[in-house]
């Protein structure tokens, strides 16, 4: 494979120089996957498709797959935000590895031997609705007995739904705290805002590789303990997306 000096470079992330490049079966900018090194640092670089702009779903998935392959191989990776496209390899060396060198070394140090897990906890719909109705008789009384399309019925439905959503939101802080306590033992936590009313917790957790098994067991235990009221999903291990570049 020949690499033209002027070929644009898509940069996935940064690792330490000398890191082996894992085999990755990914599309889009993962073509020609290689390292561009400068001193003790190396950028993970691929060649973006020449016939279309970047930004499709396959590109986003490739970004995750490439970085994930480095993480799976045990490498410490600083992921760049999706979309880092530079003019050529010398720009990668200058604009990223040189200009940002100290910062990148600090980030590599910070990520260290940790990986990220993303935990999502949601209320099981029927369970939480029953709970809300049992705790709030005034909400239960608003339930509609027949389907009619009148304006009154519409307003009543909106009101009912709003009260239900608010009642669920009142349950959230305590439940989120309980699950976080049960998970415990992580290096860092980044809790995201809820993105749906039935979300209990959406958090990125930084976990040392050596603690990963114990961490996964604790989550499995929590999932069992809270079944069927809460549904717990686990994503990862993945690159420390949430824990780099935070000032």
């Amino acid at each position: 494979m020949t690499t033209s000096v002027v070929a644009p470079c898509y940069v996935f992330g940064v690792v330490r120089a000398g890191t082996p490049v894992p085999a990755v079966d990914a599309a889009g900018p993962a073509a020609g996957l290689r390292l561009v090194e400068a001193g003790d640092l190396a950028a993970i670089v691929g060649s973006p498709p020449g016939d279309r702009p970047l930004g499709r779903a396959v590109d986003l998935v490739a970004h995750d797959q490439v970085l994930g392959a480095f993480v799976a191989a045990g490498t410490t990776v600083v992921p760049l935000q999706f979309g880092a496209l530079l003019a050529d390899e010398s720009a990668v060396v200058e604009d990223i590895l040189t200009v940002r060198g100290d910062e990148l070394r600090a980030e590599l140090e910070k990520v260290g031997d940790c990986v990220q897990y993303t935990v999502k906890v949601r209320y099981e719909q029927d369970e939480v609705l029953r709970e809300v109705l049992a705790a709030h008789p005034e909400i239960a009384r608003l339930r509609r007995r027949s389907d009619s399309d009148s304006a009154e019925s519409f307003d009543r439905s909106v009101r009912l739904g709003e009260l239900v959503v608010r009642a669920i939101e009142e349950l959230r802080p305590a439940d989120a705290g309980t699950v976080l306590d049960e998970i415990g033992g992580v290096a860092d936590v980044h809790v995201h805002d809820a993105s749906a009313p039935e979300d209990v917790l959406n958090a990125a957790l930084l976990v040392e590789r050596g603690q990963a098994d114990a961490f996964e067991r604790r989550l499995e235990n929590a999932a069992q303990a809270h079944h069927p009221r809460l549904r717990i999903s686990l994503f990862g291990p993945s690159p420390a997306y949430d824990f780099v570049g935070r000032t």
């Binding site: 986003l60 760049l80 604009d95």
Partner: peptide
Amino acid sequence: ILDKGLVIDAYVRV
């Protein structure tokens, strides 16, 4: 992954 990771100012945002 969206909007996460280290931001490099020099890049052309796709």
